[in-house]
Amino acid sequence: MNTKPSLRNDWTKQEIEEIYHSPLLQLVYRAATVHREWHNPEEIQMSTLLSIKTGGCPEDCSYCGQAARYHTNIKVQALLSIESVLEHARKAKDSGSSRFCMAAAWREVRNNRDFDRVIDMVKGVNDLGLEVCCTLGMLTEEQAVRLQEAGLYAYNHNLDTSEQYYEEIISTRTFDNRINTINNVRKAGITVCSGGIIGLGETHADRISMLLTLANMPKHPESVPINALARVAGTPLEENPKVDTWEMVRMIATARIVMPSSMVRLSAGRIEMTEFEQAWCFMAGANSIFTGERETLLVTPNPGVSEDMQLLNTLGLKPMGKREEVRVD
């Protein structure tokens, strides 16, 4: 008998506030229960994120070391070759990853030879039997269709923060720009990966507002990354305090409850977490991590494959295989 509750897209801010601010142990227990109703609690999806074009971005995202206007130690790297990317994808698959994500530090996709090369990368990674994800900046509907036809499974475009706080973090594109790209991805039939970052100086109300926007989309994002700010020297937010792990647990648990069918991804910030802290995040409903042989998440430090496999083994967890898209009417 199927006892899953129906998915909701009509949450009120007050409802999410009550969930978010509930006593922590009660919140985690509720989230863990929802997680078991919708997912196999013994599986964690291993995803690999590769920067295929690094640095030199014209945007002014206050947290990002790849913005050209900030003086960081990140080296600009031109778009990688197709074969180089496919070699990374093969290694990722051999290491247990079922999802391979390619990121380019672009403001927006342009219809040129670089985009043609990305299309060929998507085809090649798809042929390897991996879920293919891209994050390339703003995207038109026509460009999204090209990516879908090439075999793209998911497109990442994070909201980053609430609509109300957004202009404090980024001025070179609007919150509506982000929503428009997500809508274009949906229209093309690609699954959506969209979440945000905590530790930007936002309030609890901002975090709740961001989750409200995601949870009330016509269809929940299939993937919801929850990132802790990775403080990059040379960026405006480099002196922000480290995000408290209990804040991450609270965000993950709330996301799991209001978007139960989504993959909730424990993303940036894991390098500063102990095994115990990561285990709490898994108990709260996170069921995906980013890993890789380079031990970086784009341009910031991240645990490596062997470390992550040891963690999963300690906790009695196992890597998830490639999934078929889950459709919920």
Results as ranks from 00 to 15, higher is better:
residue 2 N to S: 12
residue 7 L to G: 06
residue 7 L to V: 15
residue 8 R to W: 09
residue 10 D to R: 10
residue 10 D to T: 12
residue 11 W to V: 08
residue 13 K to A: 12
residue 19 I to C: 10
residue 22 S to H: 08
residue 24 L to P: 02
residue 27 L to D: 00
residue 31 A to L: 09
residue 36 R to N: 14
residue 40 N to K: 05
residue 41 P to N: 06
residue 41 P to L: 05
residue 42 E to R: 10
residue 45 Q to P: 01
residue 46 M to R: 01
residue 47 S to I: 10
residue 47 S to T: 15
residue 48 T to R: 05
residue 51 S to I: 02
residue 57 C to E: 00
residue 58 P to Q: 08
residue 62 S to I: 08
residue 64 C to D: 06
residue 66 Q to G: 04
residue 70 Y to R: 04
residue 72 T to G: 07
residue 78 A to Q: 14
residue 84 S to P: 00
residue 84 S to C: 09
residue 86 L to W: 05
residue 88 H to V: 00
residue 88 H to G: 07
residue 91 K to R: 15
residue 95 S to Y: 11
residue 97 S to W: 04
residue 97 S to R: 05
residue 100 F to E: 02
residue 101 C to H: 02
residue 103 A to K: 02
residue 103 A to Y: 01
residue 104 A to I: 05
residue 105 A to T: 05
residue 108 E to A: 15
residue 109 V to D: 06
residue 115 F to V: 10
residue 119 I to Y: 03
residue 124 G to F: 09
residue 127 D to A: 15
residue 127 D to C: 07
residue 132 V to T: 10
residue 133 C to R: 03
residue 134 C to W: 00
residue 134 C to R: 02
residue 135 T to Y: 06
residue 139 L to G: 04
residue 148 Q to C: 09
residue 149 E to N: 10
residue 149 E to A: 14
residue 151 G to T: 04
residue 155 Y to V: 03
residue 156 N to Q: 13
residue 156 N to K: 03
residue 157 H to D: 03
residue 157 H to Q: 14
residue 164 Q to A: 12
residue 164 Q to Y: 00
residue 166 Y to N: 13
residue 168 E to T: 14
residue 172 T to V: 11
residue 173 R to C: 13
residue 174 T to S: 15
residue 174 T to D: 08
residue 178 R to Y: 00
residue 183 N to C: 11
residue 185 V to G: 06
residue 187 K to R: 15
residue 188 A to N: 00
residue 193 C to D: 01
residue 193 C to S: 01
residue 194 S to G: 08
residue 195 G to S: 12
residue 195 G to T: 08
residue 196 G to S: 09
residue 204 H to I: 13
residue 204 H to Y: 12
residue 204 H to A: 15
residue 205 A to C: 04
residue 210 M to C: 13
residue 216 N to T: 09
residue 219 K to A: 13
residue 222 E to Y: 05
residue 222 E to C: 03
residue 224 V to F: 04
residue 232 V to I: 13
residue 235 T to D: 03
residue 236 P to M: 03
residue 239 E to H: 14
residue 241 P to S: 06
residue 242 K to M: 15
residue 244 D to R: 10
residue 244 D to V: 13
residue 247 E to T: 10
residue 247 E to Q: 14
residue 249 V to D: 01
residue 252 I to T: 11
residue 259 M to L: 15
residue 262 S to L: 07
residue 263 M to V: 12
residue 268 A to H: 02
residue 270 R to S: 06
residue 271 I to K: 12
residue 272 E to V: 04
residue 277 E to S: 09
residue 277 E to M: 07
residue 279 A to D: 00
residue 280 W to H: 13
residue 284 A to L: 02
residue 285 G to K: 05
residue 288 S to H: 03
residue 293 E to D: 13
residue 293 E to R: 08
residue 295 E to H: 06
residue 296 T to L: 15
residue 299 V to F: 01
residue 300 T to S: 14
residue 303 P to G: 09
residue 305 V to E: 06
residue 306 S to C: 10
residue 310 Q to W: 11
residue 317 L to S: 04
residue 318 K to H: 12
residue 318 K to P: 05
residue 319 P to M: 05
residue 319 P to H: 01
residue 320 M to H: 05
residue 324 E to R: 11
residue 327 R to P: 04
residue 328 V to P: 00
